[in-house]
Nucleic acid binder design. Sequence first.
DNA 1: CCTAGTTGCAAGTACTTACTTGCATCATGA
DNA 2: TCATGATGCAAGTAAGTACTTGCAACTAGG
Lengths: 194, 194
Amino acid sequence: MCAALKLFAERGYAGACTKEIAHEAGVAEVTLFRHFVSKDKLLEEVMSHFTFISVMPQLLTEIAALPCEEALATLAGSFIDHLALRKEWVKIMQAEMQRAPEKLFTVYHAFLDDLLGGFVACFRQLQKRGCLGDFDLELGARMFHGFCFSYFLQEEIQGRKSYKFTNRDLVIREYVRIFLYGTSNRCPVMPSTT
Amino acid sequence: MCAALKLFAERGYAGACTKEIAHEAGVAEVTLFRHFVSKDKLLEEVMSHFTFISVMPQLLTEIAALPCEEALATLAGSFIDHLALRKEWVKIMQAEMQRAPEKLFTVYHAFLDDLLGGFVACFRQLQKRGCLGDFDLELGARMFHGFCFSYFLQEEIQGRKSYKFTNRDLVIREYVRIFLYGTSNRCPVMPSTT
DNA sequence: CCTAGTTGCAAGTACTTACTTGCATCATGA
DNA sequence: TCATGATGCAAGTAAGTACTTGCAACTAGG
């Protein structure tokens, strides 16, 4: 299944052939077909086997003691780490979600729902502690997810190298700061005031 | 070339076959090979034919007269519109960038560089007018690009439907507001002050 | 030792794929 | 009118694809 994950990610579902997957796994092609009836089933099994498990509950307790900015930075960092560990899974999802059986589609959307729900829960916790402004949590979660995911995409998948700042923590820290300031409703809109 | 663009986007490079592309275009398969020597060359030609052209210069003049928040919202909106118009191109890029000839890779990165440069120029213009805070412009551009692109991905490509807010302008407006507040360095960090 | 289950090997099937070739058809422009 | 170039059709090639089958070798448990 690791071999399949790797090759599906590298060449796409249509581009990866069963012969090569079997070779990568160090078994005969026929063995592969005896275990996973067909290539389709193989993809399905691989993608559900390596599915994300929700780390949100654990994260919520983890950040409970941290100051707000640290908490958000930890949240973003953990999310990106998590994605990076499941790089291949994400890659396959991105590429095959729409042409593959609807199963993948729903799996991915369930994952996203869970994730955004977790972000919202995090924000709510911080709001209760009084260190996060009053804003629409769903919209905030979408934006938060947006710049984190996009950062991951560029760094881990598209291999962008031409940036001034390459230190991940620094970049995340800055994003989080902007997000935190931006959602704090005590900010004046225009610098003209005062 | 439109037919090829469409089918490559729908089924991926490996998944789209020349026979079908020709049929979609309403010509014989042999005609296709007489025009574009091989399938590889066809992909290359398609991707360079539909390349983005930089709209930044035009945008810069367009937003010159707008108040800051409007300007950023227009910038984000135009960017997302632009992506939506080239949906298929982006899809193919995302999927094929890494396995396709290095040409695609460099084309895409050049596009990103140009885009981020445009964002930076926009921000600088707004800074000169004194309505945008003092922050690292490259980092800001990366973040701005991040949440815009991610919004586009989810709306146009992944087909997310389960959100509370579906009005694009409203969402963008909120993102932009958070970004604008967040980068305004006159904001107090913690609500505790004052 | 014997049986059952797992694996590999070799060969093969039926189909698809990118790409080619030869020939006939047709429109255009000189 | 004639030549040129683009097109379609039909057939074919060579390779690759997912997937199957039969048989022999091996391993592990009773």
